[in-house]
Design a protein around this nucleic acid. Structure first.
Length: 761
DNA sequence: GACGTTGTCCTTTTT
DNA sequence: GGACAACGTC
């Protein structure tokens, strides 16, 4: 099992006791080490399968871990505690719902549900949603929870913050009334459950002897506390991660956890996996040199024995359209050379960039597949159907109530809803509980809706899960509604897919023939050991099939890849590419302001995260890597001009080959732009015409207004705003605008024809 | 209450 | 450019 590992890998797998931190570079066999370690621990009798807790961030990663462990050992991994933070917490909360102060039928809010709850909350409490935008409130609540803070524990310094905290408190109360938990709440609840209930805490602390954590660099403060608490009974934590691939700080991940963990736990037990089995020499060296520009690294240097390989190809194109066209031509050539389209990836910083590229690929007839975007369980018609099912489970789920109370339309308008909101607020009840009071005042369609839900609940209780789903799609009127809609056919198809998904779920969990509304023995969420007795729980806590299915829908929003499997070029954001690898990779849009993104350029830590993102992008490539940039690009409906990304300059020139593109200087958009508005591209001679190898300085462009030439990155002075830096240029002529970050007043967009700016030298 | 028109806002994403 | 929300009209 461990014979074919390299030395550091074997050292990590067989480390005997105590905590350990494994710094696993890109392509260094991270998952292999994790899974082999689990198998090794069990095989050598160091723990039983029940003594292991393995945590990941994504369902995909946890599934892969289960499959790979199962391939190493003849055990049923389904019973092991291998899962995502959220999935495992959900399991704990189902088992201990009473001690966690939750109703048995509690439901999980996804991000969209959460936002709609916040909106309703703001409206019901007449809070100015200009000063407190729903997005901001949502972010505030989530980041507080990710730090492990309840509303009463948040430090509010100014009045605005104090109001935020009040809203947070209202939100907490509303969730509790509704019997719903958001994603962060799953973790926070479990943390509190373990903190407050000694016997439960002791039980799990005793049980888990080895806790293994994947992608440790992505943990937030809450997850770190969670791990600390669970390991409090002497368990060993085996944390695997790569600080250079930490790209989720924006959602609360704290790389600092790695350094903290090393200091507090893994003293001395740090293992570096530095041999890369993925990329060839030039690619790997480029990545190493780039990331060396970051400070605050734990430090490591990847190497390969695969030889230098090819130089990285860099290309500068006049426009985003030209960039896409160039991609098309190059991909045609690659495919002509026999490279499979599945092994080609086009990466970009932000989703907005994909459209132009898609358009070009589509016109050229090149099959492609875009990752990201709407997932199955997030589709409107699916969410509607799920909302009915959730109401069957839990009448108090106001979010679901609100979603479908008048969908399909049944004559319940804004006035009725308003009085419902009124009543609910006055009496501190949920919508469902307030129906009688409002209905008494003439809202009979509302009473009918309530009756509909009750009837559905009764009718579906004894049906199997898939039958129940099918029945509800019909009885809710959803099916009829979409039949009458022009674009309804696809939605009806998707609703059919939902029934399908329920059938698959039944099979996978041995639920065929079982009633959807009765607890099913196959869904007992506790391990088959002494826990029931030890925890003083008299009954095995089983879920109903419906409840389990709804949790599955919320926690695994499902594949968004309808066309999976066919031979298509892979398109995705750099974030989405983490963990994947391809023979040929195109990193596109390498322009300052786009990659690195303008929102991150000003702040040094933001820039470092962008650099790590670039590092992730580079290390996706096995054999061939392209870096492309466009001098002009349509962004937010305006043409913007940018200079090439500083990251291109951070790649040593001996790893780069600048490609000459024929016809660049004749590009229509550049020419007409230059003619019409007198802006000049500076240094517009292409260095690569001299032979095509290793040239460091490409051209850059700017905006000429009068006698002044403005460029991104330039320092400027404004009479009122003071000194600042240009972080973006857009438009042209009279519409020319500059986004400027001022040291004192923050970012402003100024019209270059009007604002008086001095260029600082 | 359903539909058309204008106004605002734009990273990255998993659970 | 485009998604989505808010407003106005029938």
């Amino acid at each position: 099992m461990i014979d074919h590992l390299n030395d550091p890998q074997r050292a990590a797998v067989t480390i005997d006791s105590g905590h350990a931190l494994v710094l696993a570079g890109a392509g260094s066999g991270k998952t292999r080490v994790l899974t082999t370690r689990i198998a090794w621990l069990i095989q050598n009798g160091l723990t039983s399968p029940f003594g292991i807790l393995a945590v990941t961030f994504t369902n995909k990663a946890s599934k892969e871990m289960q499959v790979r462990v199962a391939s190493l050992l003849p055990i049923d991994t389904r019973n092991m505690w291998v899962g995502t933070f959220h999935g495992l917490c959900h399991r704990l909360l189902r088992a201990h719902f009473r001690d966690a102060s939750l109703p048995q039928g509690f439901q999980i809010l996804d991000t969209a549900d959460q936002l709609s709850l916040v909106k309703r909350l703001l409206k019901a409490n007449q809070i100015d949603d200009e000063k407190f935008t729903p997005r901001d409130v949502q972010r505030f609540i989530n980041s507080a929870k990710e730090e492990g803070l309840r509303s009463h524990a948040v430090d509010a310094s100014d009045p605005h913050q104090r109001r935020m905290v009040e809203i947070y408190a209202l939100y907490e109360a509303q969730c509790q009334r509704d019997g719903v938990v958001d994603f962060a709440e799953l973790l926070l609840r479990v943390l509190e459950l373990l903190e407050r209930h000694e016997p439960i805490r002791a039980h799990y602390q005793r049980r888990f002897r080895h806790i293994l954590v994947d992608e440790f660099q992505d943990t937030n403060a809450l997850q770190y506390r969670w791990l600390k608490l669970l390991s409090g009974g002497g368990a060993n934590i085996f944390a695997v991660g790569d600080d250079d691939q930490s790209i989720y700080a924006f959602r609360g991940a704290d790389v600092g956890n790695m350094a903290d963990f090393e200091r507090d736990y893994a003293r001395g037990a740090v293992i570096r996996l530095e041999q890369n089995y993925r990329s060839q020499g030039h690619i790997l060296d480029a990545a190493n040199h780039l990331i060396a520009h970051n400070s605050h690294r734990l430090g490591k240097n990847l190497w390969t024995d695969q030889g230098e390989g090819e130089l990285i190809r860099a290309v500068e194109l006049p426009s985003d359209g030209a960039e896409s066209q160039w991609l098309v031509d190059e991909i045609k050539a690659l495919v002509g050379d026999g490279i499979s389209r599945l092994d080609i990836a086009i990466l970009y910083r932000s989703n907005a960039q994909s459209r132009v590229i898609e358009h070009a690929l589509f016109s050229a007839g090149i099959p492609y597949r875009v990752y990201g975007g709407l997932r199955f369980f997030e589709r409107q018609e699916i969410k509607h159907a799920l909302a009915y099912l959730r109401l069957v489970m839990n009448r108090d789920d106001d979010t679901s109530f609100n979603r479908v109370v008048n969908f399909p339309a049944r004559g319940i308008g804004a006035r009725t809803i308003e009085s419902l909101v009124d009543q609910a607020r006055t009496y501190n009840t949920t919508f469902s509980q307030s129906v009688a009071r409002v209905a008494g005042k003439g809202g009979s369609s509302l009473a009918q809706f309530s009756l509909l839900i009750e009837t559905m609940a009764q009718e579906t209780r004894m049906l199997t899960l898939s039958e129940a789903v099918e029945h509800i799609i019909e009885a809710s009127g959803l099916l009829n509604h979409y039949r009458g809609e022009k674009e309804g056919a696809e939605r009806i198809e998707n609703l059919g897919e939902l029934v399908n998904a329920a059938t698959v779920f039944e099979t996978e969990h041995d639920l065929s023939g079982l009633p959807s509304g009765e607890p099913a023995k196959t869904l007992i969420e506790l391990m088959p050991d002494d826990s029931v007795e030890e925890l003083g729980l008299n009954l095995p806590i089983a879920q109903t099939p419906l409840s389990a299915f709804l949790a599955y829908a919320a926690l695994e929003s499902g594949d968004n890849q309808a066309q999976a499997g066919q031979d298509a070029v892979q398109m995705m954001t750099v974030h989405a590419a983490k963990g994947l690898e391809f023979d040929a990779v195109f990193i596109t849009g390498l322009e300052d302001g786009l990659f690195p993104h303008e929102n991150s350029i000003i702040d040094p830590s933001g820039l470092e995260e962008e650099r790590r993102l670039m590092y992730v992008a580079i290390t996706r490539a096995r054999k061939r890597l392209y870096m492309t940039m466009a001098q002009s690009r349509m962004l937010h409906g305006q043409t913007r001009y940018a200079v090439r990304s500083r990251f291109l300059d951070e790649v040593p020139e001996n790893h780069l080959k600048w490609l000459t593109v024929r016809g660049v200087s004749n590009d229509v958009s550049t020419q007409s732009y230059a003619r019409a508005f007198g802006a000049v591209g500076v240094n517009n001679s292409r260095s690569s015409q001299y032979g095509g190898t290793a040239l460091s300085k490409g051209p850059s462009s700017g905006l000429q207004i009068g006698s002044q030439l403005f460029r991104v990155g330039q320092g400027v002075r404004h009479a009122r705003f003071g000194e600042g830096t240009i972080i973006g240029l857009s438009g042209s002529g009279l519409d020319a605008q500059a986004q400027i970050h001022f040291a004192d007043v923050g970012s402003k967009t100024l019209a270059l024809g009007i604002a008086k700016l001095d260029i600082m030298t």
